[in-house]
């Protein structure tokens, strides 16, 4: 086992942690069905509330879709570490010789597959419902791909910081994390707006890539540090 190169060992660990997270999620479907249902319900309510006029809807569509995506990701994230903290798994992770940030990355990626990927998949349909020009749909999907990953990475920091807070942890987490997610919202909806107006969206998308790179390199370390505090305080 020690003869394996370090990276192969970590990759195998990442894969088995990912399998574990997905196995847990499949057995408790409410956890990952809630965000996607929330996303669909909020967006379908807008044409009913605002009126089905294509002009109004297509103007507000990028913002509506992006705000719904942000809220659906954030509202579901607070339970990310809850189970593992309370059944003692997190303590085992902290006390193992494996790097905690790999555990965090696996959990985040599993959460993205369950809570982020479905949003991408239904977003073209919802875009048509909101009369978003067809030319903007690829940019919408791409911006959601980059944005949801960043949001979950950043949200994981908040989830770890508030893991030991009982009820009300969700509000505290939103207060902590929402300011950090505002740039993602601005550049994400900005990209879609630009594409809807037949303007180049490359600038916005590049900034989303930059934000993702920043979150990917810093968030797992910060989350791991917060989890160590959570375990020692629990």
């Amino acid at each position: 086992m020690d003869s394996l190169p370090l990276s192969t060992g970590l990759l195998a660990l990442f894969r088995s942690l990912l399998t574990r997270e997905l196995a847990v999620a499949i057995r408790s479907p409410g956890q990952w069905l809630n965000p996607i249902l929330f996303f669909i319900i909020v967006i379908t309510l807008f044409p009913l509330g605002v009126g089905p006029g294509p002009n109004t809807l297509s103007i507000i569509a990028p913002g509506i879709i992006w705000v719904s995506a942000l809220l659906s990701v954030m509202l579901s994230l607070q339970s990310l570490f809850y189970d593992d903290l309370h059944n003692g798994s997190l303590e085992q992770f902290v006390l193992s010789a494996q790097p905690l940030s790999v555990v965090v990355l696996a959990k985040v990626f599993a959460w993205w597959i369950l809570g982020g990927l479905p949003l991408l998949l239904v977003s073209p349909l919802l875009a048509i419902l909101m009369h978003l020009p067809a030319s903007a749909i690829p940019v919408l999907v791409l911006s959601l791909l980059l944005g949801t990953l960043t949001l979950i990475l950043v949200g994981a920091i908040g989830a770890a910081l508030t893991a030991t807070v009982g009820n009300g942890g969700g509000i505290l987490m939103s207060l902590l994390v929402l300011p950090l997610t505002v740039p993602v919202l601005i550049f994400g909806s900005g990209a879609v707006q630009a594409a809807a107006l037949q303007m180049p969206a490359g600038g916005h998308l590049s900034l989303l890539v930059a934000l993702l790179a920043l979150a990917l390199s810093l968030a797992p370390v910060a989350t791991a540090a917060a989890l160590r505090v959570a375990v020692s305080a629990s």
């Binding site: 196995a23 408790s28 189970d83 593992d84 059944n87 003692g88 798994s89 303590e91």
Partner: peptide, 10 residues
Amino acid sequence: GHRPGVHAQL
């Protein structure tokens, strides 16, 4: 530990 580290869903 006091909490056994066994996940109920697994």
